[in-house]
């Protein structure tokens, strides 16, 4: 097994758990507390933000347009969920599906084609839904 700790400074080798996790959690709670205090004591300053977001809620976010288009095409809810889950599983398993030793995608024509076709398909589905 490769020793990745070689040549690292002491600060870089600080344990992730509990040191870094604790700092991250404390900072997250501090930020949440600041927002909650703000809403409690300065509610007026948050009013405009609420009104602005309320006027844009009726729009589908751009990145969900392809999924809404596909769900419109497939009336069977379970089938839609099955296809989306299968697609997500394939996406998550990319490192295990691509066994080619070459790193750069530009040197793997078949895999490059699959990636480009998928990206173009998502883009096209999103544009079609937007036009609708």
């Amino acid at each position: 097994m490769v020793d990745y700790s070689k040549g690292r400074s002491e600060e870089e080798l600080e344990p992730f758990f509990p040191n870094e996790i604790l700092r991250h959690t404390l900072l997250s709670f501090l930020l949440l507390s600041a927002i909650m205090l703000g809403v409690l004591f300065l509610p007026e300053s948050y009013m405009n933000t609420v009104e602005e977001s309320a006027s844009s809620v009726n729009k589908i976010p751009w990145f969900l347009l392809p999924f809404y288009y596909i769900s419109g095409l497939i009336n069977h809810k379970a089938l839609f969920l099955f296809i989306i889950t299968l697609y997500a599983m394939a996406f998550i398993s990319v490192p295990f599906l691509d066994r080619n030793s070459e790193r750069s995608l530009w040197n793997k024509p078949v895999f490059l084609l699959i990636v480009l076709v998928n990206l173009l398909m998502i883009l096209a589905l999103g544009i079609i839904k937007y036009i609708q």
């Binding site: 490769v2 998550i92 990319v94 490192p95 691509d98 070459e102 790193r103 995608l105």
Partner: peptide, 16 residues
């Protein structure tokens, strides 16, 4: 990550 192939060994579990 995808285009540079950074998900390759030993970083498969970064991608997942």
């Amino acid at each position: 990550i995808l285009f540079k192939g950074i998900y390759k060994k030993p970083r498969e579990l970064h991608w997942v």
